[in-house]
Amino acid sequence: MRVYLLLIWTWTRAAARYPTSFALMTVAGTVTAGLEVAAIWIVFSNTTTLGGFDVSEVMFLYGTAGLPFSVADLLFSNTDRISQHIKAGTFDAMLVRPVGTFVQIAADRFTPHRAGRVLQAAIVLGVALARLDVPASRAWMIPVMVACGIVIFTSIWALGGALQFLLTDAPEVTNAFTYGGGTLTQYPLTVYGADLVRGVTYVLPLAFVNWQPGLYVLGRADPMGLPYALRFLSPAAAAALAVVAAFAWRAGVRRYRSTGS
């Protein structure tokens, strides 16, 4: 972790040497993310509720999905470049360094310009909380769910990276899970089909990013009627997924070293 922080700091200083380019990318990233908010605004200019949730609640869910997603995106999404590293041969160079490959890839060419998205999600969450008036007795869950969300999204990026050891020629597949996961969690899960919700509860635990703990914060009954205890299980789900992701990553690296692709 210390090595990772030192590495991204070095890359940040390198990026700061081109301030205009950096500012431009930051603005561009923030504007792109702003479009998602514009989309929510357009949806709610046509309706007052979506999937049984009003605009403040949807903004709350958007914020509690967007904040961990954008943090994970900022810090670890470089792992989806693994197939580029494999094809360019730079992965070999990483294997002769005495640091874990995940840390090296995540830190490689780090730029902080995606930080604009973190800020944007935090603002949406702040606005939602100001409108919702959540009691302090339930608000404690918010930092917990953001932390668990970061772990869950980071694990999905690691799983996507591990998948690229197999699908080196089709790295775009992982976008369906990483960015797809980010998109899915932006809206209340009631809008999706029941099978999809079961899938993201029991298989790929995206429901534990903001849906289950979010129901607790919002003080709402589960529209799908799933057990009440699920809303406190985010830490367990995050830990389990992180373990799976760590094994998958190791298996991917081992496969690379035994096939020499």
């Binding site: 369906a176 797809g180 998109t183």
Partner: peptide, 20 residues
């Protein structure tokens, strides 16, 4: 891979539109 990703996003977006 692109077709797969387009399909996944198609399903996610379609559900939001259905709800609307």
């Amino acid at each position: 891979a692109g077709a797969f990703t387009n399909t996944v996003f198609g399903v996610l977006r379609a559900y939001v539109l259905i709800a609307l």
